[in-house]
Every structure is written in structure tokens, then in C-alpha cells.
Nucleic acid binder design. Structure first.
Lengths: 123, 123
DNA sequence: ACGTTCATACGATAGGCATCGTAGTACGGC
DNA sequence: GCCGTACTACGATGCCTATCGTATGAACGT
């Protein structure tokens, strides 16, 4: 029990963001979260960054409110973690939780996304 | 070009079932196809069978028409192959195509599905 | 205190989709 | 030729969701 992510974060006095606990995460929901091109892109960027990024750091061809929507879906389905730092909202992949539940899955998806992008883009 | 699946099957005189060619298959669509509990179950059964199964061989807690719908989604998104044998429609996973496009992905999903089922069912 | 920046909430809209039931079509056996 | 079996097509329904714009709120710097 040393690698688990706190299901309920210590609400730091700021706005609170509900995350599902590790045990709450369901495969079908994770797949659904990843099955949207925008969200897949978000997850790829987040994975490449290897750390936290603010929402504004990830450029998407949609409006701001739609962006908020996609980030919320990813959070509520257990794919990413979010917390506020000042006015910015930081985002990070929940790698440890996903790896514990579905070993290899996320890496497989990320790899597949990279391969497809290379295949479709550069030819 | 020796391992590719025929994009257009030789319509054997029977009802024809359009399949996407290997190059047509998109990751987001595959994930979407897998992101439904019914379809995930179908795929798991099909993978375990290691061969072709008729639609009726896979019992689902939904009506027949809904069943048809799910099989069609899986076929149109490139996850399964279908063909008629007499009155029965046979189904098979497109393992080779999926493996070529997204190596390891399907196995990862199947493994994750198995793990989750064991985790949620037996405890 | 004020304005700027970042992100949210809310309402609206349009399209997608999982589900059903009923009626119909194709094939095989009698 | 007729019937049963297996699946499809079509239409309906209700929910979910991706998108937007506008108005609002929270934190920071000056």
C-alpha cells in the first residue's frame, strides 16, 4: 500500500475536484474516455510530458468550454488527476493506478496512437 | 503484401458484409467499439474461442436486434470479421490486422478485461 | 481595489447511440 | 413447396455527448 493514489485528496481550501478511487475505475469507462480523438490527444501529450501540464498548455482545436468538458471526462473516468495551482489547473496521467489495474494497457494505447499518427501523417 | 486481409471479399453470391480494409481502421474507432460492456464481452468470448462463432453462440442479456447492432459496430470498426455460413453468421476477431496496426493493444485490453472480471467477480 | 488570466457553470443544440419490437428475408431440411 | 431457424431492416424512444457562447468565479500582480 505504498503506491496508491489518495482517493480523496486533502481539500486544500481551494476548489475541490472529485476523483474516482482506484477501485472505482472501470475498463469500459477508461476505453470510452480514450475513444475520442481530442481526449486521446490530451492523453498522448500528457504522457509525453511525463509531468503535470496546465490545461492551457495543451492546444486543441475546440472551444475552451469543450476543453473543460474533455478534461472532466478524463478525470471522472480515472484517466487523469487534476489539481489547482493558482489560477491554473494542472493535469497528470494516473499512470500508477492504471498500471496497477490494467497492466500494459495505457502503454499499448499510447504506442498505438503514436504508430497511427506516424502512419497517417507521414506518407 | 502477403499478410493483408482482403479489403473486399469475393462476394460469394450470398449477402455481402462490408468490412473496412486494414488501412481504414482507426484507433479511436476501435477503442470506441471496445468501450461498451456488451461488445467487450463479445470480443472476450471470441478471443477465448480462438475460432469462429455464430452470433447465437454468444449469449447476451439484450434483444436480438441489439445484438445485431453490436456485431455490426464491431465489424464496421474493424474489430471482427463476419461471413455467412448457411443461415448462421460467423464471427472472428481480426487479430492479424489489429496486431499489425496496434501491436499489443488487443492483448492488453483482453488481459485487462480478464483481470477486472476476476477482481470484481470473485471477492 | 482593480483588472487580467484561467478555468467553470449553465443553457442550448444537434447528432449519436443503445435499446426495443415487429415485420421481413435468406437459407436449409422435410 | 412449405416451415423453421437465423439474422436483418426499419422505425421509435430516450439518453448521452460533443460542441458552442456567454456569464461567473477564483487567484495573482500591480
Amino acid at each position: 500500500m505504498s503506491t496508491d493514489t489518495p482517493a480523496a485528496e486533502p481539500v486544500s481550501g481551494a476548489r475541490s475536484l472529485p476523483h474516482p478511487g482506484r477501485e472505482e475505475i472501470r475498463l469500459a469507462q477508461v476505453l470510452h474516455a480514450l475513444a475520442d480523438p481530442m481526449r486521446l490527444r490530451i492523453v498522448c501529450v500528457l504522457a509525453a510530458a511525463e509531468g503535470e501540464l496546465s490545461c492551457a498548455d495543451i492546444e486543441l482545436p475546440v472551444s475552451k468550454s469543450t476543453c473543460t468538458h474533455h478534461f472532466r471526462v478524463l478525470r471522472e473516468h480515472g484517466v487523469i488527476q487534476q489539481f489547482y495551482r493558482g489560477t491554473a489547473k494542472m493535469n497528470g496521467l494516473r499512470r500508477a493506478d492504471l498500471e496497477a489495474l490494467f497492466p500494459g494497457l495505457i502503454d499499448g494505447v499510447l504506442r498505438a496512437a503514436g504508430l497511427q499518427e506516424r502512419r497517417l501523417g507521414e506518407r
